[in-house]
């Protein structure tokens, strides 16, 4: 392995080991009465073993909600952005409401949503959708309307149809903006699903997600299990972000300046 690669694996591993060591040190320095506040790493691992099935099921449920909401937001925001970019009139009419949507406090909206569609996956998906929608729509619209003026003239000069202009110029030119929105949405989707599940989750049917488990574990004072839940949330978020970053790299690295290597 080249030196660079060894370092990029070794250094984070060392930092992780140091973190666990400090964690352990703080725990042993606490007096016996307060040790429950900070479970040891081994306790967290055994919590995983003990609650493995329900944590796995909860993680899957939250993943489903996060994925559905995320994909829904991508599809619908992209379509809306196209409409907004095509007509300044539509843009002027609906943009304020797009902003308003972003201002909607999810905590307030969740009970209303539960009333409408019932608790569980449907509510969680819609809440995730709402949280992801705004950064996607704003960035994609921005990208679609900031096409280089000269390139637009070039397409007009060669008498490209409006359809060709959108498909072969405006959409590719908007991709870097779209991926900026997608990266933001990817960090928000798991959080959205978690918050959604916390406020509108349900044990009925699928048995709830990680947000719902959080409520149960905290009411039962199962602190190691809470730490295990947090770890599962982290893993989920990591998978989302890593997935979007890979997709972004695959799409843009050949031509976009943000992926230009320093040595070329």
């Amino acid at each position: 392995m080249p030196r660079q690669k060894i370092f990029s694996v070794l250094l984070p591993a060392l930092a992780g080991a140091l973190f666990i060591a400090i964690w352990h040190f703080i725990r042993v320095s606490l007096s016996e009465d307060f040790r429950f506040l900070l479970p040891s790493p081994t306790e967290v691992i055994s919590a995983f073993r003990e609650h493995g099935d329900e944590l796995w099921r909860a993680t899957l449920n939250t993943t489903t909600g996060a994925t559905l909401g995320f994909l829904g937001a991508v599809t619908i925001s992209f379509t809306l952005s196209l409409l907004l970019s095509l007509s300044p009139l539509v843009r002027v009419t609906f943009y304020p409401y797009l902003m308003l949507l972003q201002m909607t406090p999810i905590i307030v909206f969740a009970p209303i949503l539960v009333l409408w569609v019932g608790p569980g996956l449907k509510s969680v998906t819609i809440i995730t959708f709402l949280i992801c929608f705004f950064p996607l729509a704003v960035n994609t619209t921005q990208g679609l309307v900031s096409t280089d003026r000269n390139l637009v003239e070039l397409f007009r000069l060669y008498r490209a149809t409006k359809f060709q202009e959108i498909l072969r110029l405006r959409i590719p030119a908007a991709l870097p903006y779209f991926f900026t929105g997608l990266r933001i949405a990817a960090t928000l989707a798991p959080i959205g699903a978690l918050v959604g599940d916390y406020t509108a989750g349900s044990s009925a049917g699928d048995g709830g997600g990680l947000g719902f488990q959080t409520i149960i574990y905290s009411s039962q004072a199962k602190y190691p299990a809470l730490f295990a839940t947090a770890a599962a949330c982290c893993a989920l978020g990591f998978i989302f972000v890593a997935g979007v970053l890979s997709l972004s790299w695959l799409t843009l690295h050949k031509w976009h300046d943000s992926y230009e290597r320093a040595d070329t």
């Binding site: 280089d148 000269n150 390139l151 590719p172 991709l175």
Partner: peptide, 11 residues
Amino acid sequence: YVFQEPTLLPW
């Protein structure tokens, strides 16, 4: 038409 800038599609 050849523009002032190269006006190439970067992708």
